[in-house]
Design a protein around this nucleic acid. Structure first.
Ligand SMILES: [Mn+2]
Ligand SMILES: [Mn+2]
Ligand SMILES: [Zn+2]
Ligand SMILES: [Zn+2]
Lengths: 157, 157
DNA sequence: ACATCTTATGCAATCTTGTTGCGTTTGTTC
DNA sequence: GAACAAACGCAACAAGATTGCATAAGATGT
């Protein structure tokens, strides 16, 4: 809150990270786990699996805690939780503009997911009587940059 | 193949069911498991989970066999395999017209899936350089008829 | 700085969905 | 019916995710 706690050991630019700020704004506790996981998500340019997040976090953080932090971030709408064709959840930070209507790309080879922020999902599909629409999800299937190469390699998860 | 077989609408044990016909046409073996599972899918008006199919099959049929039959039906393109937000695959028979481009509806409350045959999925999203599109999947999220009622009940799987 | 209260965490156990290996049964062809 | 390959049943396995509970750590007030 107040200006500067003298915290300059870090090579990172901000004394209080953007992640920390975001978490504090929710009113909930600002914990190490939440900061670390959110920073990983913010640094990634794509959707990450639980495994990838756990591996990317600096220092030890329990598997279950990562699950719980991700669940919390999703409930706070700070993160997106995306189901994949490999039955693995992936998570991204939820930018402001991409709040509701945006599409995803998922690679049919390695299952990686990225957000396609500029794809308009303005369909208005006709539903059967009694059904209520709350939004449309568009997922482009195909090959990502890495997998479109001559010898498509199966990325190990 | 020819027009000949008149569709008897009887649900009584037919001499040769439509399911049996379809399976035989693939050239593979016409087994009890395949017939039973396919008949269940044909009778259902929506996408079914492995659990639902196993329960709906008359007589004992091993869990694993149901998985293998569903996998076979999918490879034969007789069935669709649809990923759900609850990490559970669902299966529908693949009608002729809905062969490739059609949308799905998934209920945010009970996770049920139905096919929306008449929704055009004609978007052509712009992908990052190097990415290759192989099709677009459109899923409408919302509440199904059962869950849109005054007291939305969580359907137990 | 300390005491206190609340919430989040670590760890083990458990659950759920789906897969694999292998010996036995069944469908098809001759 | 015999022979052969394909499919099946069963048990074990695997991976992702969840739950229960004792302990640790964040927040708040003094
Ligand atoms: Mn997204
Ligand atoms: Mn379908
Ligand atoms: Zn890929
Ligand atoms: Zn529903």
């Amino acid at each position: 809150m107040r200006a500067a706690t003298p915290e300059s050991r870090r090579s990172s630019p901000a004394a209080v990270s953007a992640a920390e700020e975001l978490i504090r704004a929710t009113g909930a506790r600002v914990t190490q786990g939440r900061i670390l996981v959110l920073e990983v998500l913010q640094a990634a340019g794509r959707a990450l699996t639980h495994h990838e997040i756990e591996a990317a976090v600096t220092g030890p953080l329990d598997r279950v805690t990562v699950y719980r932090v991700l669940d919390w971030l999703t409930r706070q709408q700070i993160a997106h939780k995306i189901p994949g064709d490999d039955r693995v959840w992936r998570f991204t930070i939820a930018g402001q503009k991409q709040a509701h209507h945006h599409a995803h790309f998922q690679c049919t080879d390695c299952s990686q997911v990225i957000c396609l922020d500029d794809v308009p999902t303005t369909l208005r599909p006709r539903l059967p009587a009694g059904y209520r629409s709350a939004g449309v999800e568009v997922t482009v299937k195909g090959q990502c940059k890495a997998c479109v190469r001559p010898a498509p390699r199966r990325v190990r998860r």
